[in-house]
Amino acid sequence: MKRIGKIAGITWAFAGLILIIILFPGLNGFSRALAKMPFMKINPNYTGGEIAFSDSLPGYKFEIRKPVFDGLWKERTHGFVQLDWRGDFPEKISDTIDFDRDGCNDFRVTIDTKTPETDIEPLHNKVGSLNVSTSTSYGWTLRVNISK
């Protein structure tokens, strides 16, 4: 029994040696294989969710993403909606948003991208406060807190 344990231990140690030797040359392949796993995607709380609607305007593109309410096992009652302006967007943004496309405007947004002062005027009680308003490498991103 001791001899079997000894052989098993040494075999496992050599397997460890092989694993470390192939780790770095194979890192790219291993990482790509892991990245294909179904759970290997960034949570919508960070990405801002999928694009629900986009509109191409002269010089820039405007996108509204699906509201994010993601919780651990069920949706939360509070979340946010993300809006993106991509490209050569106007210096002063002033828009009325219907993020859930139900025909009723949900909030009015005014952004001075120079200062960058942002005002949210809720037009519906499901709209809360400003979460994020920031310039990005692709344009401008706004996140507004919402509830169900």
């Binding site: 990482s31 790509r32 759970f39 290997m40 960034i42 709380n45």
Partner: peptide
């Protein structure tokens, strides 16, 4: 396990210190 997603604002693969490579290492 529950949400089938990663709760970190990084990149899954590619770029500096991506999630996949660091997890494998």
């Amino acid at each position: 396990a529950f949400t089938k997603s990663i709760i970190f604002p990084g990149t899954i693969i590619g770029g500096f210190a991506d999630i996949s490579s660091m997890v494998v290492l």
